[in-house]
Design a protein around this nucleic acid. Structure first.
Lengths: 153, 153
DNA sequence: ATTTATGCAAAATCTTTGCATCAAC
DNA sequence: GTTGATGCAAAGATTTTGCATAAAT
């Protein structure tokens, strides 16, 4: 009988959170990892959906307003989060799922769905080119009723 | 010699101003034509380009802030003016030239150029349809440098 | 006469800033 | 020990509201 060998394999499934990723990226470019900052990043990462600044403020009771505003600004500048303008002039924030994208904004429940459309992007680039406009960015939001609100209505 | 007939023809070229048009439309739906309101409509009609609420306020010194805000809101609701959201969260206002349209927003000089693209609109409708989204409106802004700012830069 | 619109000033929002203190590196 | 980050509260900026008065129909 040949000798047997026991092989035990540990597989750790690590969920890399938004807070972790963001924190690392911030540290890389010289920002410090502080408790208040991490708290804000966690709150953002755990948000169940699009949120307002007010929402975020109430999720991090110990943290000062200024810090929350400063953190949001930081993440926006680094494209780690996106700001979605609503029709009433207010905005919602959300962690960007992919790269560049557009949004479907539900007027009833406020849900935000990201989507991409290379054809639209191409036409946009073309329109800019035609007009001698040096395109640097764009923003596209669709407003209406999401699938479930539509059924309810 | 046959009798002659003099025919004199008066042609009046009337420039119908924005203020006139808007005022009439407002009266038609039951709003009153008041001096402050007309002043605001005139200022809007005479604006050399996109303007902020602040710009408008300073153009109608005698008129109260509330009236200016209320008039803007009214015109937006009636689609007689459009609100263009900028990247910094502020907005500019402009009399809509055509029907539905999109905007090229110059990051340097702030100029706003309207454009249309049926193909983009079609793709947008298609994207909504695919997702079971009842599309009711959309907003598309392109950010970058306009032709002249681009040359200067 | 009715009823809408106005102006004012206060209130309500929303965001930024100055600065002393605290914490990270 | 340096330097960046924080919290607080005050200041700014922006928009809305209540209400007595004025003006339009």
């Amino acid at each position: 009988m040949p000798p047997s060998v026991a092989i035990r394999c540990f597989v750790t499934i690590e969920t890399v959170t938004f807070a972790d990723t963001a924190s690392s990226r911030l540290e890389l470019i010289g920002f410090r990892s502080t408790a208040p900052r991490r708290a804000v990043l966690n709150a953002i990462g755990n948000a169940p959906g699009p949120f307002t600044v007010e929402d975020l403020l109430s999720e991090v009771p110990g943290v000062g307003r200024a810090t929350v505003f400063r953190t949001i600004k930081l993440l926006l500048e680094l494209d780690m989060m996106c700001r979605v303008p609503l029709e009433d002039g207010t905005a919602r924030y959300q962690v960007s799922e992919g790269d560049h994208h557009h949004h479907l904004v539900c007027r009833t429940c406020g849900s935000l769905t990201e989507f991409n459309d290379p054809e639209i992007d191409a036409r946009i680039a073309e329109q800019a080119r035609t007009r001698g406009f040096a395109l640097q960015g764009h923003s596209l939001e669709l407003y209406g009723l999401c699938q479930s609100c539509r059924r309810t209505a």
